[in-house]
Amino acid sequence: MNIFRLTGDLAHLLAIIILLLKIWKTRSCAGISGKSQILFAIVYTTRYLDLVTTFVSAYNTLMKIFFLASSYATMYLIYIKFKATYDHNHDTFRIEFLVAPAFVLAMLITHAYTLLEVLWTFSIYLESVAILPQLFMVSKTGEAESITSHYLFALGSYRALYILNWIYRYVMENNYDLIAIVAGIVQTVLYCDFFYLYVTKVLKGKKLQLPA
């Protein structure tokens, strides 16, 4: 554990809490892509199967349980409790176009050909692109509420901080994981456009609105 890893995890935790609070307080999931949330649920489910086989630390176990539980809770809020507010007309990204290639790639490039390891690799590849339905939705509607922008900023920051964690681990511990590093860089690059808009607009008190 190092400071980059810890702040990355905390940014991830913060993102999830912001999203849940936004939906709960406004009683609405307007502007939130259910498709991205389905992908995140698939990501956590396939990645954290090792909860039952490998114990790393209490921290590791508790965080995994929180990420799993919160992703299912978010899906419940979007697809059941506040279904009427879900903007499905703008959430039209075809997730099979992300799930299938991520799975094929995991079969081709993985650390080991065991069920858990291939599914872990699949989850890493899928996570790197899981935000695309949400970004697609923002580009389709041309805007995002400020709270949604804060959520996206925290969520994007998490993998960017993990890149610093991987550099630190490479330098200090001579430990690296190429699959996680490359996928994490792809994931962070996808947010760059959004980061730019966040800094130039949302932080100056303006709404995130794309030019028509």
Partner: peptide, 10 residues
């Protein structure tokens, strides 16, 4: 080439 995933990171 690839170093093993240590399952520590989330």
């Amino acid at each position: 080439l690839l170093q093993e995933n240590d399952h520590d990171e989330l």
